[in-house]
Amino acid sequence: MSTTILLTIISLSAIGSIAAIILYFVAQKFKVFEDPRIGMVEEALPAANCGGCGYPGCRGFAEALVRADDISPLFCPVGGNDVMTTVAKILGKEVEAKEPLVAVIRCSGSFAKRPRTNEYDGATTCIISSNLYSGDTGCQYGCLGMGDCVTVCKFDAIYMDKETGLPVVIDDKCTACGACVKACPNIIIELRKKNKKDRKIFVSCVNKDKGGIAKKSCEVACIGCSKCVKVCPYEAITLENFLAYIDPNKCKLCRKCVEECPTNAILEINFPPRKQKDESIEGTEQVKSSEKENE
């Protein structure tokens, strides 16, 4: 009996050690040299694997960062400037600070404001609906309301408001990875500068129809009246195809256009309630000065 046990132990140990030796040599032979910095960079990245950088996962981005001579075109939107500085330190390269961005929904056509003209009853994704026809309202440009943006968001930063049928971005959670921008077939989502205190002014409409048609299909559509263009002191607003667009780089958040818009298509977000007209201009001055301090 004891010999059986002994034999078993010996033979198994022998097999084990032979296998270990073979494995060791095989591992040596097939060893792949890897830049240790890739691992370090990956460590520094947020590990969200969101693809917001344009690479497949954080690992892919880390490899790209290590490979690149100039890393300034590369940016991790989730980690933001902090992470990029850390990465730059690891790699000994330069990186510029970038303005933090946040997704905004450029459509205000809620159930109340934009009457439905038909009912959609297909697969509940925006992309299939948009491949089929112009949508269940008179406006063929606006939000389709089936939440493809919500599905792709990995940070739970966007949800559908059941009351309005429109998606809502939770600014604090949004990392500006851009997944929703890519997912939206009507391209109504845009990444815009976060600004101080998350203050934003933008045209919440993408309707390119003529004024009358746009207005008929949606109460809060941009009708291309060009009033905002005229009132803007910074020439930040352009009008194309009956649709106004505020350039975030030129806009100084003066809020003049918001008041001027006859259809309330321009939204101001996170501003204090308006007081007297004079004071509000003063307020903008403050914002401007504080922005300068930031830079």
């Binding site: 439905r116 003209t117 038909n118 009912e119 959609y120 009853d121 297909g122 697969a123 299939i128 089929l132 026809y133 269940d136």
Partner: peptide, 8 residues
């Protein structure tokens, strides 16, 4: 009344 639209 609204008509329904869906893919074939």
């Amino acid at each position: 009344r609204l008509i329904t639209v869906s893919p074939s």
